[in-house]
Nucleic acid binder design. Structure first.
Lengths: 373, 373
DNA sequence: GTTAGCACTCCACTAACACGAGTGCTAACA
DNA sequence: TGTTAGCACTCGTGTTAGTGGAGTGCTAAC
């Protein structure tokens, strides 16, 4: 059996209707509220076919139809494709582009304003990226009524840019590590050896000369031993310090994620029962399971190229999210340093609205960060 | 009407039973399962009195009784008092002490072990306080089946200990700020002025000489202006830097809080309905509302002195927690630098077990951190 | 002051039933 | 051959009525 245009239209109608109402949709509804001009009986026949093909299913006999994951996938792929085509047209014809942009501009402006006011609260304070991201993710959650997630920007390969040791008191050294992409980490190191400024200066030089430009993978035991040798009697101290540095770089791998609007899952009955909600909340709270999704570059995903990735149901391979869909987008903090922003909702979420919202937000983040540079 | 001993015993019996079963408790239950040897009818009379006094109430006619907040308060105060008395006895008589300790030792040891294994995962990595706290709070949530909360240790008055400017590249200075209690913060500062090592050294000296030992309150515009003046042509840059430093100290006020086991609220039906659960989840996610509770020194609380604080229902003044109780304890990270650990559960939580668990955890944290010094 | 007895209340649970939305199938129609 | 009307059937939802049991308050007797 093949998926002709009429079937596709009916499938789309079913999904659209289901997204709006959240109720199984029956043949009568489709026959009445679409421009297909077909009777309910005909629709029923087509629906039986669609069910056989695995795009829709009935929760029970004598109920309407609900899209399956495959159905959603088809719908989303179509949607994304028509989006990118639209985008291409837009860039081909500048006039059209500005007109089309205008149609979206209200929403965009409002969001922009909110972004600005969110930051004017910290106007004369220094703008801290962390709080910017927290504001953004909160705003997104509020606007969409879905749970939102954002990751701190992350260099894809953490190269060491700069190390500095500073003496804090007799027993403590502060080790400041700067990574590619200007990610800064600190580590307090307890020492037993006596120290003076001269030695500290020498150690700083030694460490910077030998370690700068290296990744965590390149700083191994072998190399640590060689450097420690050069440090003569300070060898043990130096190898201790190198351990700390390695650990620090490693900890920078631990991507930081903020969530907002977790309570929104209670808006959707299919996610609200204690079991499901509890598991989801755990996933959001512990964040480990999210990192995979928030670092997935989506190279081989069907939505590649647009920067937008859509995971439907099981596609996340996070079991607590099997009844959810997640859409992510990438923003650029500095050249080569990216972060992700995502939205988690029920499978019947408003994919179009969410994709728009994410595009707007990443656009405005990109502009904001590039302006700063 | 006065609260004689018999009434108190009955009240305690009611509460104990309710904590166990979660069901309203009737007169028959009390008359059968206590050593009071009174008939149900007598208990009923006493119950009517206790209700009049506001310690218990009926969810509806012809149901058993449930403790009110006042009832819980009485119960908890009694419990805490007998605990501290027990403690005093223990310290008075060393022999007794070791015996009593032994009785608790199993639990303590198991917990200790878990703590250790939790950390041996990061054995050869550097032990980062953040991950230690996260492990602890997670363990606590798992052991108690309540939601747990922990705050990063925080100096009560943030004094500046040390500042350092470092040049990262032509356009960027890294400003490292160390506060009393060895809290380290970083700030990236964009500059337009040209820089060289000489000038940087001078600025570093100037800033450290003038700012060290000051609190945020003491670094005002007036002083910034005076320092900027001393910096001659670098005045604007310096005042910009001072702004950044002030902002950084300010941001250190933003206490960091980790939560674990949020899903545990679904174990307790009285917290699980969408509305309540949603609000609670929000409170846990946003954390702002928790800061007040997690910084409350509890000086004027009824449980003062023990380090343990108990908030019952409305006592938290956080509306989403009106059906919860929260118990917090204080741990010491360094001298004068404290953090708090807390447990949030239904009002009918097992107060005794929780107090024990918190005492154990703070003890072991105290020991761990003091050992490290 | 304590207790047994009794009438009363109210929740929780179950069974029965009606309703309605939706289906699949068949037969008729264009 | 594709489309449509009609019809019997299914199944979840909501309503109603009825029952049982746990618990109370009150009264009267001990």
């Amino acid at each position: 059996m093949e998926l002709d245009i009429r079937k596709k239209k009916i499938l789309q109608a079913i999904i659209k209707n289901y997204l709006e109402t959240g109720e199984p949709v029956g043949s009568r509804t489709i026959s009445k509220y679409t421009d297909l001009e077909l009777s309910a009986a005909t629709i029923r026949n087509e629906m039986a076919d669609l069910e056989e093909m695995g795009y829709i299913f009935q929760p029970h006999t004598s109920a309407g139809r609900i899209p399956t994951d495959a159905g959603y996938r088809l719908y989303v792929d179509d949607m994304l494709q028509s989006r990118t085509e639209e985008l291409n047209e837009m860039s081909a014809d500048l006039k059209n582009r500005s007109e089309l942009l205008e149609s979206r501009s209200e929403l965009l402006e409002r969001r922009e304003e909110e972004l600005d006011t969110a930051q004017s609260n910290v106007a004369d304070r220094v703008e801290r990226i962390e709080s910017v991201l927290k504001d953004v993710v909160k705003m997104l959650a509020n606007n969409t009524n879905y749970t939102s997630v954002i990751s701190m920007p992350q260099a894809n390969r953490n190269k060491l840019k700069f190390v500095q040791l500073t003496q804090i008191d007799e027993k403590k050294l502060l080790c400041t590590v700067v990574l590619e992409g200007n990610i800064v980490k600190n580590e307090m190191i307890r020492i037993d050896t006596d120290m003076d400024q001269q030695i500290l200066l020498r150690l700083n030089l030694l460490l910077n000369n030998t370690l700068n430009g290296l990744t965590l993978q390149e700083i191994n035991f072998d190399m640590a031993a060689r450097i420690a040798e050069q440090a003569e009697q300070y060898g043990p101290l130096v190898s201790d310090i190198i351990n700390h540095i390695a650990a620090t770089i490693g900890s920078a791998d631990g991507i930081e994620i903020f969530t907002s609007g977790a309570r929104n899952i209670f808006r959707y009955p299919e996610l609200s029962d204690s079991m499901r909600a509890g598991e989801l909340i755990s996933t959001l709270e512990e964040k480990e399971l999210l990192t995979e999704l928030m670092t997935d570059t989506g190279e081989e995903s069907p939505d590649a190229g647009t920067g937008i990735q859509v995971y439907i149901g099981q596609e996340t391979s996070v079991s607590s999210m099997k009844d959810c869909s997640m859409i992510t987008a990438t923003y650029e903090f500095e050249k080569g340093v990216y972060g992700k922003i995502g939205i988690i909702g029920p499978k019947r979420m408003d994919y179009e609205k969410v994709v728009d919202a994410l595009n707007d937000v990443t656009d405005s983040l990109d502009r904001k960060f590039s302006k700063k540079r």
